[in-house]
Design a protein around this nucleic acid. Structure first.
Lengths: 190, 190
DNA sequence: ATATAACTTGAATGATTGTTCAACTTTTGC
DNA sequence: GCAAAAGTTGAACAATCATTCAAGTTATAT
């Protein structure tokens, strides 16, 4: 029973990157072989097929994202401050040259009738993100207020992910966030 | 000089629908031939290639969208009321069974390094939409306020387009819009 | 009526798609 | 040390991809 000779994490890192940038359809298995240096047989034995590989990539990405979000949310005493930090980070990301939006958002919109299972899987991951915000907002809010605020946060995040993909304008996005999320208590200067 | 025997508008309608639902990569020319009933030669003579066909589809969709938006904006005396109507319409759309988000948003996120020209074209169309809101908001706002409000509207629209694609929850979206866009002056009941 | 330009047809192109598999190598359990 | 399990290899598969083109048809201009 020989062990796999490749680092599964490393492989998923490369594959996720390819899927993230190019999308599910536009990423060929040929591309996967090249980015990982593995041969067809190894990939198919380890991940089943393209859908399985994509699903694991999604999980890999979600895991990283949630961990990072949770860390930031736990770091600050006031939830609003943490969320502000997260949103500002997203804006900064969107201004970088190689920005390619959010893997989950892109996948959600790309997948359709032909990949229902994958699409539902993405939806589930997005709901996990919203639940995380909801959980932290519950500390200072009623259930209905926390839900509305969590949804509003998600709307703005989705907005940044799309808007930032073609605009790259930090100030415009920041002004829009200040206007749409006044309850986050933005400071006067920044 | 024989005229084309097909209705260009009708063909674009069908093709747009396919691209909209399946995306650029996942829509094969074979699909195009089937949906239109035309043979390869006719399509390639009329539209050049897949990219050209996609570009015309985008323009067809943008034309229809802008016309509809402009009509609603011109219909109401108060801009805020018009925008509220538009957003509510978007929410209603997102609750329908066959909802497939916004063609421009989906394309913006799908297109990448390999279709830079197309991607820029989509960005341009999205900017036209924002400019339309900006123009109408200028009537009652300073330039900076109108810009911030237009951006905020776009963020929320993008949000609906993504959020509505996996949630289908009318009330949640509405509550989030009321929270994020209070300056639109929502009535107490609805 | 005829010449010519516009358009349609459908088979064919070579490249690329996702996936399989028999042969081979490596590691493990006993 | 031996057998079996696990993993690797690289060629090969049929299917589909976007696109082309020579031949045939149609409409228009003169």
């Amino acid at each position: 029973m020989a062990r796999a000779q490749f680092d599964r994490e490393q492989v998923l890192e490369n594959v996720t990157n390819a899927f993230w940038r190019l999308g599910y359809s536009a990423t060929s298995m040929q591309t996967v072989f090249e980015k990982t240096g593995l041969k067809p047989g190894s990939i198919y034995l380890a991940f089943g097929n393209k859908e399985g590989l994509f699903k694991e990539s999604l999980d890999h990405y979600t895991q990283q994202s949630l961990t990072r979000l949770e860390a930031t949310l736990a770091q600050y005493t006031r939830v609003e401050e943490a969320i502000r930090h997260i949103l500002c980070r997203f804006i900064e990301e969107s201004c970088q040259a190689q920005y390619c939006s959010c893997f989950l958002v892109k996948s959600q919109l790309e997948l359709g009738e032909h990949q229902v299972e994958l699409k539902n899987h993405v939806s589930e991951q997005l709901r996990r993100v919203e639940s995380l915000f909801y959980k932290y907002l519950l500390k200072d809010n009623s259930e209905s207020a926390a839900q509305a605020k969590a949804s509003s946060i998600m709307l703005h995040i989705f907005g940044i992910r799309v808007y930032g993909y073609h605009s790259h304008s930090r100030d415009q996005l920041l002004a829009a966030l200040r206007l749409g999320l006044p309850w986050l208590g933005w400071s006067a200067e920044h």
